[in-house]
């Protein structure tokens, strides 16, 4: 399935008080709402979904870049998922052929 359009569906991030940050602090926080994230890419993805209306051009570019990186990772994951499905399917098929 295509990754590059219609990504801006509804999102429902948990309220800001339902986060648990280790004592040394969060790696990154959202400049708009203060929610903590593990890396800058997740912050950009979050801002693109939750604060899209108030982003400036630079922030928008960052969101687009983060989505691009994420899409590449998703493509790789899908290849692995297909490989796993094929192994699972034919593996079971062979087990059935041997057992029954």
């Amino acid at each position: 399935m295509s990754d590059n359009h219609a990504e801006h569906g509804p999102t429902d991030p948990p309220p800001p008080d339902s986060y648990e940050v280790p004592p040394e602090g969060a790696a990154e926080t959202c400049p708009d709402c203060g929610r903590p994230f593990h890396d800058a890419e997740l912050v950009a993805l979050h801002r693109g979904l939750a604060h899209e209306a108030v982003l400036d051009d630079e922030a928008r570019e960052r969101v687009a870049a983060a989505r691009e990186v994420e899409s590449r990772r998703l493509r790789l994951f899908r290849l692995k998922a297909i490989a796993a499905l094929v192994v699972l399917y034919f593996g079971l098929l062979m087990v059935y052929a041997v057992v029954t």
């Binding site: 399935m1 295509s2 990754d3 219609a6 990504e7 801006h8 569906g9 509804p10 999102t11 979904l49 998703l74 994951f77 899908r78 998922a81 796993a84 499905l85 699972l88 399917y89 079971l92 087990v95």
Partner: peptide
């Protein structure tokens, strides 16, 4: 084992649905 595999496979298949508007 087949049942367990079917659940695992449905997770792998679900992971193809990554379009937010579609999922919602």
């Amino acid at each position: 084992a087949t049942g367990g595999a079917a659940v695992g496979a449905s997770f792998l298949l679900a992971s193809f649905g990554t379009d937010r508007a579609f999922v919602a």
